[in-house]
């Protein structure tokens, strides 16, 4: 077997330690070693963002980092959103505003959006579009993703938000 090294990371508040090959990508570490399969893989050229996670709160493409580079860092993956089965505003926004179809880009989209809202609680449409431009979606055409983020922003700011797509909630 190839040489291995120890990696110690905190993922969604829980500490994990494992021995991995130095060449193992963070995305494979999360998916194969920790069985957190909510982080997806959509390309091999760092273009799609399906693998996005937060590293110390900053969105990173986990296919472009080695697991060892995450050593000592604090990660958030989609599995860390919401609590006790409840949804946090960004998840609620995607659901209410139909910001997802096949769901494959959704974890990455929600995490970049969460990072955006942490910095900019009231982003314009252009700011949202720019923030998610490292993440590709093949299904939605982005329009409802923008609305999902706006919904979450409003919910975080004011404690409530109304959905707008498809003639409103039903």
């Amino acid at each position: 077997m190839a040489e291995t090294v120890t990696v110690k990371v905190t993922v969604n508040g829980v500490e994990h330690e494992a021995r991995v090959e130095p060449r193992m990508l963070l995305v494979h570490f999360l998916r194969d070693e920790l069985d957190m399969t909510g982080t997806h893989i959509g390309c091999d050229t760092t273009n799609c963002g399906a693998c996005t996670v937060l590293v110390d709160g900053v969105p990173m493409k986990s296919c472009t980092m080695f697991a060892v580079q995450a050593d000592g860092h604090d990660l958030t993956t989609v599995e860390g959103l919401g609590d006790n089965g409840g949804l946090e505003p960004i998840q609620e926004g995607f659901h209410q505003e139909h910001g997802l179809q096949c769901g494959f880009c959704t974890p990455g989209m929600m995490l970049v959006s969460k990072a955006l809202l942490a910095e900019n609680p009231d982003p314009s449409e252009a700011e949202i579009r720019r923030a998610i431009s490292g993440n590709l979606c093949r299904c939605t055409g982005y329009q409802n993703i923008v609305k999902s983020v706006q919904y979450a922003a409003k919910k975080i700011r004011t404690g409530s938000a109304e959905s707008t797509v498809g003639g409103g909630a039903s």
Binding site: G38, H40, G85, L87, F94, L100, F104, S170
Partner: peptide, 22 residues
């Protein structure tokens, strides 16, 4: 415009795509 049932798993990272099968 019924909100989608399938969203519940996708927004939690609990979808099960083929590459997730182990």
């Amino acid at each position: 415009s019924v909100r989608r049932k399938e969203d519940a798993r996708f927004v939690r990272g609990k979808g099960r795509y083929v590459d997730d099968v182990k």
